[in-house]
Design a protein around this nucleic acid. Sequence first.
DNA 1: TTGCCATTTAAGCATTCGCTAATATATTTT
DNA 2: AAAATATATTAGCGAATGCTTAAATGGCAA
Lengths: 101, 101
Amino acid sequence: MSRAPAHTTAFHAVADPTRRAILELLRDREQAASELTEPFETSQSAVSQHLAVLRRAKLVTRRRDGRRQLYSVCPEPLRAVADWIAQFDQFWDQKTDDLEK
Amino acid sequence: MSRAPAHTTAFHAVADPTRRAILELLRDREQAASELTEPFETSQSAVSQHLAVLRRAKLVTRRRDGRRQLYSVCPEPLRAVADWIAQFDQFWDQKTDDLEK
DNA sequence: TTGCCATTTAAGCATTCGCTAATATATTTT
DNA sequence: AAAATATATTAGCGAATGCTTAAATGGCAA
């Protein structure tokens, strides 16, 4: 199996709190880059760079609308993270399991 | 709500592939730091530093056994990650939902 | 075309990261 | 006690990260 470069993985992308907040905003609806900038205290450029990271991780897609770029969330790669975490499920269910015995 | 420093969060801890591999090893059983070093090509020191990160994120606990430190996984903080991801569930179920209509 | 708007890209910088090498600490063995 | 073992900690380094400012790009409007 060939490994994806670490910096393109969902694990890496969601490690940053600003990027997580961006994904949360996009959860509600498709949104333009400028709209995504407003909630943050950082520059529009910084947000654009975060969007580029999310795009490399395939967590967002964009489409053009006139001079705006509309971003939408694309959570499929999060499944890899969820699946990875799922392998630890038995652990936090252990208490329940123990009670049942 | 007070925010935990980013570098103590599970999000940050699991962003690194070596740390994920360590957690996977610990999934099977409690393991000493030296055992955890073997599978990797890196130094004992590097692994020890990764274990410190995992410890700060409360993803592992350790107990002493003679001169060894036995580490066990403690996946509870992963729940925060899983819960965060869960808010996107509707999206990848969308296809299914659309079919049902 | 010229200029404006929306966004990206590039350059530079301080900080953080993951690593190695060396040293320190704790425990057991001799 | 001294030596050996197991681990942690420190210092330093190159690379990556997230940011700002400035310049480039693409689309629209006058």
